[in-house]
Amino acid sequence: MTVALSTLPGEAAPVAERPVLEVEELVVEYASRSRTTRAVDGVSLAIAPGEIVGLAGESGCGKSTLGNAIMQVLRPPARIASGRVLFHGEDLVRLSGEQLRRHRWRNVSMVFQSAMNALNPVLRVSDQFVDMMRSHERVSKRDAVGRAGELLELVGIDRRRLRAYPHELSGGMRQRVIIAMALALEPELVIMDEPTTALDVVVQREILQQVRELQRARGFAVLFVTHDLSLLLELAHRVAIMYAGEIVEVAPAAALRDDARHPYTAGLLSSFPPLTGPVERLSGIPGSPPDLAAPPSGCRFHPRCPHCVPGDTALHRRQVAERPVLREVAPGHLVACHLVEEGL
């Protein structure tokens, strides 16, 4: 899949070059005794250097699994059944344990939702930085602490906080520490899995601002996974919408906001009440996300889709029987929907 890059108005376009990361037809399965669940089902996605890609979807749609698969931190019973995850053309799925350990954090790092779980509660912040750095490169303890101090100041925390234990920091500060740790080895890609979901709006805003500034200054790429589409529309260059294990729409943020083509995306957009303008009754999306162990036939969104009207029409037959594939409807704007294919 080739992806045209796009930008927000008024910003320099990231230079189009070979993607940092390419995910090709990735399938991740959870196997249990009785059944196999495909949490990620044939997903392809590319991330260019210095690009912020948002990945939005509801709980259980496979977005975190996709993030974990890219980071290669899936735990059994989850496993990659097929597909490739290419980092600068090298397939991560084939790496050995030791190669993977070297690759992780140095090339791709991750920020988890729960900062409290990601930090070791009995170690000082400085020790956690030092341990992490020294497991990847030869660096004296002094230098490591010095760099840790710089990193903390980068995310707006006083250097003296290095001596603190995680529980002595507020939730927002812990999440900033995690972000600083993710940036410590200057990776080319940072995966952020709901990094602000557990935080208050004001703190969330501060952290997003910081991520954006850091990303501009240092040029790393970000895969930002969240359920909050409105947040991505502000933060990301490009947004991918995931539903029931599949990517149903990918588009530059502005295009997605103004011209969402997939009914699911449109439904998500109309699920956020606006803070300004007239208050109109919103419709949301009827029903609830499907059970991935037994996904609906055809288009997985068809049972909830307002444009799927039962009847003996060719369109309806396609909707319930045929899986739509991603097609480009505008430069960089891909949609997997029968309506779009039929030109409706």
Partner: peptide, 15 residues
């Protein structure tokens, strides 16, 4: 609080 709410209109105006 109001300024912190992402309103989906891009830009991330600094608070």
């Amino acid at each position: 609080l109001i300024e912190s709410v992402p309103d989906g209109h891009g830009g991330l105006a600094p608070i």
